[in-house]
Nucleic acid binder design. Structure first.
Lengths: 184, 184
DNA sequence: AACATAATGTAGCAGTTGCTACAAGGATAT
DNA sequence: ATATCCTTGTAGCAACTGCTACATTATGTT
């Protein structure tokens, strides 16, 4: 016997890697169980149901990304909108972080169709991110900081979508074009 | 007897409305058949297989949107980036057109996971849209017009995602903020 | 009237879905 | 040693998936 909590934690770890790599479309109970290296029966022993699995795993991934971003962008460093836009976009579209954003887009897209539990998850992701941007952004006087943050977040999500289905360097060129287009 | 082609066309019409309203998650053969008002057996008589149904319906919707946009933005009218950004964003996020963009986001998100037939569809959507924007955009001298168009398209897609899971007027405020942020 | 062809219904197959009933192994306490 | 509980496997259910075989009705052609 190895202990239920311990096994559960190990499952979350393996499932996080699986979901990050394959997205929300490969998340039947048997697929998840196989990725976790256990039987579907045991997965439902560790978790109360499939929803519980997804919420736990996606929550864990969300925390991971927050921690990674905290490392890359210390809270003390305030940047002008244009520079923050470029650096944040480049960081989140890098191979390191793009899988997270891609997954976030899938979650938000599912939320748009009122599917549970994605509405709750996506609302949390959005709020966290906007707040995160607002605290690190040196926006012009009197501007709607949340709105500017929404534009940035939207741009990043959108570029991930575009980059997902295209072979050439269009997205990279778009990032390079941001400074000429934004602010000043 | 009513004629296969005729029935098929009627089915495409009803299915377009259904897919536009409910997205890609409600597209089992039996759900589609029910939406089209026929038996699943007949749906596979009109179409060769499920893939054929989806490609036909999504292609039809894509053509619809192109026609609607051609009406709202005549090709002869060239606009500065900032103004085009605001007007296009507002138009595509309106209740009239948001379902189309939402569906487009779903298609691109599925394409990101290498699912067929969405990769082909999404590549077509992307190329059409970028080209559409480029021909109507009065971009600064020497700028990468495709890249600017990609930024616009990305922003629109991203704002649709954000707006899908939020109650307040954040997206509307974001649109209003675009002119202060872009160009000049 | 005979016949080919087009159109439609009934029934089902093999595979997947989320989930559960039941029983058996193993550890621990008494 | 007995009883108890934690852990795990086997088997399966009812619903759904895409799709098909087969039979039947209509319709037009000769």
């Amino acid at each position: 016997m190895v202990g239920r909590e311990e096994q559960r934690a190990k499952a979350v770890e393996r499932l996080s890697a699986h979901v990050l790599a394959t997205g929300l479309s490969q998340t039947s109970l048997r697929q998840l169980a196989s990725a976790a290296g256990v039987s579907d029966r045991m997965l439902l022993y560790y978790f109360s149901d499939k929803n519980d699995v997804l919420v736990t795993v996606l929550g864990s991934l969300s925390a991971d990304l927050a921690q990674r971003l905290a490392l890359a962008f210390p809270e003390t460093q305030i940047l002008p909108v244009s520079e923050l836009a470029v650096r944040l976009t480049r960081e989140l579209l890098s191979d390191n972080h793009r899988p997270y954003i891609r997954l976030g887009v899938e979650i938000m897209s599912a939320a748009a169709r009122k599917e549970q539990p994605f509405m709750l998850l996506s609302e949390g992701i959005r709020a966290t991110f906007i707040q995160w941007i607002v605290t690190r952004m040196d926006a012009p006087e009197g501007s709607d900081r949340e709105a500017v943050a929404a534009i940035l977040l939207g741009l990043i999500d959108g570029l991930v979508l575009i980059g997902a289905c295209v072979e050439d360097d269009l997205v990279e060129r778009a990032i390079e074009t941001i400074p000429a287009l934004v602010g000043r």
